[in-house]
Design a protein around this nucleic acid. Structure first.
Lengths: 204, 204
DNA sequence: CCTTACAACAGACAAATGTATGGTATGATT
DNA sequence: AATCATACCATACATTTGTCTGTTGTAAGG
């Protein structure tokens, strides 16, 4: 009966199970057994039970593939946000129906409606938003002063800093080469699509 | 025996299963049965089998909780990269074991080993990498000239642009207020932890 | 030497779960 | 009316899988 130093094998078992769980395929006790070459089911089971006792795993008793990650160890809830290429006039709904792809996002609030947009132009370089960056947007019809928003101006989606100035609304670029857009909040000229909550850039 | 319009129930079954799968908890046939109040296991099974035949699901035969999402219907393969707070001298392995959290990443290559690091300092503002940004890093021991890398200098992880200059290695900041670091590639002074493949910034 | 603790093994049982066979009812089609 | 397809039910069976009981070997401490 080969014997391994204390706790060493258990650590590997934990990683094996965690990997499988994160991949969405909870393992059975016997799959753990085979993965480690144990000749007895019970050996695998003892490790698993010990991990549960240590709080590193949780278990649905008497259920097939019943081992889970406890709430604490669990990763963030991930949702997929559609990546939109073009957002022609008001056609946000349709654009969301036919996205260019999806990106995974850590869902803080599952009720949030998210989408992603690729940035065009250099108007926001001053705050580190560069051309071709991807902005994650939470849909909302209004914004607070200082928020970076996606707004529909002249049938085109644009990323700007939102400023409320009395009865007016200003959309400020963050680049001295560009001019602010000033609009009457009553006018139909301005439509807030949502607020930018994250910026992503892929390198190379 | 109540009867439902053609295909209507099946659609709901599919959504139920998909939701469970995305949540990492594959359902059993009987769980589907109960979720829809079928009085026969077989009813649930027929729906599931039909979905498999339609290519909307795939199945591991004779396995508990064996229904899966087929590759096509699956979104981008999402993996979770550990977010590291501190990376003390060479202790990358240990740091990965005890992360501050995880972020979802679209895994182009599953074999890649990824981790995330929070940026400190303003040395890379020139390329839009600001303090408190999160950089996603693919572990690799070498880099090409021009790559933005995470390197270990004086027991501290730092983000810089990598430049090979003959027998020397240079780590360039992207901010005129900072000085490049020049090192002998032979010396132990430089350890490349990996290459930055993505930059993320959360707003507000 | 004795005790204790741990890692692993062997064999068996029972619950959970996938699968099969045959039947009833309803609607559409011919 | 006859036929066919679909949705559903009832029951049984076989495999997978979780769980239990008891045992062996090794290491550490008294």
């Amino acid at each position: 009966m080969g014997r391994t130093p204390a706790g060493q094998t258990r650590e590997k078992v934990f990683r094996f199970v965690r990997t499988r769980l994160l991949a969405g395929q909870p393992p059975t006790v016997r799959e753990v057994q085979e993965a480690f070459g144990f000749r007895a089911v019970q050996t695998a089971r003892q490790h698993l039970e010990q991990l549960v006792e240590d709080g590193r795993l949780s278990a649905d008793r008497n259920k097939a593939r019943g081992y889970r990650l406890p709430q604490s160890a669990r990763g963030p809830r991930t949702v997929l946000a559609p990546v939109l290429g073009q957002v022609p006039a008001g056609a946000l709904e349709e654009a969301i129906e036919d996205p260019d792809g999806y990106v995974p996002v850590d869902a803080r609030d599952v009720s949030d409606e998210l989408f992603a947009l690729r940035v065009r132009g250099e108007s926001m370089t001053g705050v580190g938003i560069l051309p071709d960056d991807l902005v994650l947007v939470r849909r909302q019809p209004t914004a607070k002063s200082g928020d970076i928003v996606v707004a529909l101006v002249d049938n085109e989606a644009t990323v700007k800093t939102f400023k409320a100035r009395g009865r007016r609304v200003e959309l400020h670029p963050e680049n001295p080469s560009f001019e602010p857009i000033v609009l009457d909040s009553d006018a139909d000229g301005v439509v807030i699509l949502g607020k930018v909550i994250e910026v992503r850039r892929t390198l190379s």
